[in-house]
Nucleic acid binder design. Structure first.
Length: 922
RNA sequence: GGGCCCGUAGCUCAGCGGUAGAGCACCUCCUUUGCAAGGAGGACGCCCUGGGUUCAAAUCCCAGCGGGUCCA
């Protein structure tokens, strides 16, 4: 780390008369204007000193503070940027949630592939950090949801020229620290009290020097100078143990916690009271929490000390709490009892804000991805609400935050919260019954519920061990929850995860130019001429590289074009087309010859079908949004020639009624025959105009992006489309099915494929009608009637079999005597049911029954023995079955068996009396 | 995306190779007419679907469909 020391010696510090010091408590190096200062300013070296002693000239609300920051940086040459969604997976696939403002610009802007929306810029970015979830409410300063205010500048080294999407230096370390200082000064802070702690930053493959900016015990800003990338040959070894070297771009990445600034301006005991005063007031009242004046004072004093609490850093929270209690001179249990409801309320307020952000940004609850995180937070919140006795509905609480955050999809948010709450209630009820059954079972055995059951209950049924304890206690069963419960659960999941296949890259391609893509110029054209630049032999066939092509390579869920490449000598079939680093590879069954001129001809019918289906996919997505709500967005898509599918995020199953409405809206758009327009707008202008909903199918790199506009639906898309919606012909939804919780798959067909699909469905119906000998309209009713009748007949047959069996038993002409007990040995070729019924009837009359049958291709026996007769039926069956090459068994009074050797059945039955006697005497 | 659990009467579930069960609900009768009322009787099952193993599958194995849950 010391290698970076020079990086921190700024001219600005020199000019301003800063001193570099080392903190005797934390050992870190820091910069300060105060020559007498010894400690770095961060707990545990220093306490919070702003509580009851606000650090700025005025108090600010969250909204006022945000505006103060943004307008200050606007006045200092920065452009204000609208915040991005909290669902970072909308534009990058390496993370789920937005955890910092810089996330907005990774990876395309930070790597220099795409220009920033403005440079320099300022933003206040909503973020969610799930890591802090256990600290929320307890430490007084942690929140799961927060806004990171920031100013960013994107620089590229002069010497690399215009290789990147931005060039030159906007500003770097000195100006960054100066701006930070100026903002503190603007707010009325005492600059003498500010410390800049040297704290190198590492993350996501990048690194650089950084400062933590401390004021009155609170970390109010982090100034990161991202300037290095991971490199085994690099000169700098950072704290993660990896080596790093300087990169061509260098970026100012700052973060000013909006909540912290608001808190410091107000000097309230906890951040929560500064950030959500109204909601906390509401929750306190609703839960009936009122403190005496003395208690208020105690809570207040405890808050000042709670800066030391951090579940990551303090091993045992109870211990830390005890320390606080001791310092205050009160009983630890009493203090906990007093603080616990307040901590819960703080957490509820924070969690509701998190949920408002998530659902406001149209995350749909699910068992995967961001949807799962949302579900976890919601369930946790529900438990907290019940725990502390707040009886307001959860959707109302979330809505309070959604309203404050000014979301306009509040109805959907409430709908989602209610649906999720219902699902959770159902899970809890299921769980409760399960635990009750288990508790009774183990209580009877006088054992405690084993840990394996607890793990099973949690992992497979979502029941917290605390809940098991509670229910079990009611039923008189004991449970012991091990301290390392959650790591035991984790153990169960070890060894999961699939290996990822490496993508092979041909070095040969590196020397070829990018293929000119003609398919965007005129999407209707199907013929072209080109020069063969290279032919690469593959295991099966050849990869042909041309200078230009009409062939659309597989991508964006659209399969590749097929067709032919021909010159005067030869014609080769193209059966697949792929794109690698801008080079289009045509997989062909022959070699057209390097350097040759070829005529390319697309399989026109295939391409047309794909185009219809691609445009139809946009139309279906548009229609689904109209019918199901604005939260609907693409979760995946695959186009085909006969059918295509679109996976959409939605929090419920799609009903038949909704399917019909989607179909109607889609076909209405087809019939209106609106034009399908292609544009290449500047990406930032497009984003500003249409938002991130543009990127339903992924985010393309580059300054300009291609968009497809149909009516008022605009999407970034690289596929080929028909020119008017009327060209689709018609759209028919084939099926909807859930692919995972929160994602529904809509399969549909377009154009002639739609007609074919409808015909297939009709064929099935007509065939069914034909079999039933009725008209198609009558099929449902007739099928129902037949099914009912079929069941009735089954019952009648059962009854008749019983009657028949009784009649047979009553006939009784072939009764023999086994040492004084009457017995019947008989062959009757019926199914197992008949044999059983007959045997039962015989046994009823006090007769031993030995019945054999050869129906169904195998020999079968049933042996019944009345009570008080000393013959083991299982034994008899065993011996009989042995003679037909099989086996059998059952309880002593009623046994069944058989074997494959049908021919031996009669012989076996002949021997039955002997066997009965032998078994009796045994 | 991966792991695990579950599909049996209208509901909640038991059964886990050998004749499909219980409680609640339902119907009839009796006894009582009061906070989950008692008694007697009755009806109600493609044991999710399709393959396989077996003399025999609700039960074991495989696949599918449907539901749930945990993790990234």
């Amino acid at each position: 780390m010391s290698e970076l020391e020079a990086e921190y010696r700024l001219d600005y510090f020199e000019e301003e008369g800063f001193h570099r010091k080392q903190c005797p408590v934390t050992d870190v190096h820091f910069w300060t204007r105060d020559p007498d200062r010894e400690t770095c300013g961060e707990p545990p070296a220093d306490d919070y000193s702003f509580i009851d002693n606000p650090g700025f000239d005025e108090e600010y609300t969250l909204e006022e503070m945000r505006e103060e920051f943004l307008s200050f940086f606007e006045e200092h040459g920065h452009e204000r940027i609208e915040p991005y969604p909290v669902a970072a997976n909308r534009w990058r696939d390496d993370v789920l949630l937005t955890q910092a403002s810089i996330y907005d610009f990774q990876p395309l802007v930070t790597s220099g592939q795409t220009p920033p929306p403005a440079n320099p810029l300022t933003i206040s970015q909503p973020c969610i950090r799930m890591q802090d979830i256990d600290n929320v409410g307890k430490t007084g300063r942690h929140t799961m949801a927060f806004e990171m205010m920031a100013h960013h500048a994107f620089n590229a080294r002069e010497e690399v020229g215009d290789e990147y999407a931005y060039s030159g230096e906007v500003y770097w370390k000195d100006e960054t620290v100066e701006l930070c200082d100026q903002f503190f000064e603007h707010m009325g802070a005492d600059l003498e009290e500010i410390t800049y702690i040297e704290d190198p930053w590492v993350g996501g493959g990048n690194a650089g020097p950084a400062f933590e900016v401390l004021y009155r015990g609170a970390e109010l800003a982090t100034l990161v100078f991202m300037s290095m990338e991971q490199d085994e040959e690099g000169d700098y070894e950072m704290k993660d143990g990896n080596r790093y070297s300087p990169m061509d771009t260098y970026i100012v990445d700052t973060g000013y916690g909006l909540e912290r600034w608001t808190w410091v301006s107000q000097g309230t005991p906890t951040v929560y009271e500064a950030v959500y005063p109204d909601m906390i007031e509401f929750l306190k009242e609703n839960a009936g929490i009122s403190l005496s004046e003395e208690e208020e004072k105690l809570v207040h004093r405890a808050a000042k000390l709670s800066g030391y609490l951090d579940i990551d850093e303090v091993d045992d929270l109870t211990e830390a709490r005890a320390d606080v209690a001791e310092e205050l001179g009160v009983d630890s249990a009493e203090l906990t009892e007093l603080l616990h409801p307040l901590e819960t309320i703080y957490a509820i307020a924070d969690h509701c804000r998190t949920l408002a952000y998530m659902f406001g940004d149209e995350i749909v609850p699910s068992n995967v991805g961001t949807g799962y995180l949302a579900r976890m937070v919601l369930r946790r919140t529900k438990r907290l609400v019940d725990d502390v006795g707040v009886d307001a509905p959860l959707d109302e609480l979330v809505d309070m935050q959604a309203e404050r955050l000014d979301y306009d999809n509040r109805d959907t948010i409430r709908d989602i919260v209610r649906t999720e709450e219902r699902k959770y209630r159902e899970t809890l009820e299921r769980g409760r019954r399960k635990v009750e059954n288990l508790a009774v079972e183990y209580a009877e055995k006088a054992e405690s519920i084993p840990v394996e059951e607890l793990i099973e209950l949690y992992d497979s049924h979502g029941i917290q061990p605390e809940m098991v304890e509670e229910i079990a206690a009611d039923r008189g069963a004991s449970v012991e929850v091990p301290d390392d419960f959650y790591s035991l659960v984790a153990e169960r999941h070890e060894g999961e995860g699939a290996s990822r296949e490496a993508v092979e890259r041909s070095e040969r391609l590196a020397n070829l130019p990018e293929t000119e893509r003609l398919y965007y110029d005129d999407q209707e054209r199907t013929e072209f001429e080109a020069v063969v630049l290279d032919v690469i032999e593959r295991e099966e066939g050849y990869d042909v590289v041309l200078d230009q092509t009409m062939f659309y390579p597989e991508g964006g869920g659209q399969p590749a074009d097929h067709g032919t490449l021909a010159n005067d000598d030869t014609t080769v079939q193209v059966t697949d087309v792929q794109i690698r680093d801008g080079i289009v590879l045509h997989r062909a069954d022959g070699n057209p010859g390097k350097g040759e001129f070829v005529r390319g001809q697309l399989d026109v019918e295939r391409r047309r079908r794909l185009m219809r289906h691609h445009t139809a996919t946009h139309v279906i997505g548009y229609a689904a949004r109209q019918v199901l709500g604005e939260h609907v967005r693409q979760a995946g898509a695959q186009k085909g020639t006969r059918r295509s599918r679109l996976d959409v995020r939605h929090y419920d199953r799609i009903s038949r009624e909704e399917v019909k409405r989607i179909e109607a809206v889609a076909n209405d758009l087809v019939m209106r025959n609106v034009s399908v327009k292609q544009h290449w707008p500047d990406r930032h202008e497009a984003e500003e105009e249409h938002g991130f909903d543009l990127y339903q199918g992924g985010i393309p790199p580059g300054q300009n992006i291609r968009t497809i506009t149909i009516d008022d639906d605009v999407q970034a898309c690289g596929g080929t489309h028909v020119s008017r919606t009327g060209d689709i012909g018609t759209i028919k939804i084939l099926t909807t099915e859930p692919v995972q919780d929160g994602v529904e798959r809509i399969a549909f067909a377009a154009g002639d494929a739609a007609i074919e699909a409808t015909q297939r469905t009709e064929d099935a119906l007509y065939e069914a009608a034909d079999v039933l000998d009725v008209t198609p309209e009558d099929v449902p009713e007739t099928a129902e009637r037949f099914f009912t009748e079929w069941k009735e007949r089954g019952k009648t047959i059962d009854r008749l079999k019983t009657e028949l069996a009784e009649a047979r038993a009553a006939a009784g002409e072939d009764e023999i005597d086994v040492d004084g007990t009457p017995a019947v040995v008989r062959r009757l070729d019926g199914d197992a049911d008949e044999l059983r019924a007959t045997a039962n009837a015989l046994v009823e009359e006090g007769t031993v029954a030995v019945l054999g049958s050869a129906s169904g291709g195998s020999a079968q026996f049933v042996v019944g023995v009345p009570d008080d007769v000393g013959i083991n039926a299982g034994e008899v069956v065993g011996r009989l079955a042995g003679r037909v090459g099989g086996g059998g068994g059952g309880p002593p009074d009623f046994a069944q068996g058989g074997g494959p050797d049908v021919d031996a059945l009669d012989d076996a039955l002949d021997e039955a009396p002997e066997i009965l006697r032998a078994v009796r005497s045994a």
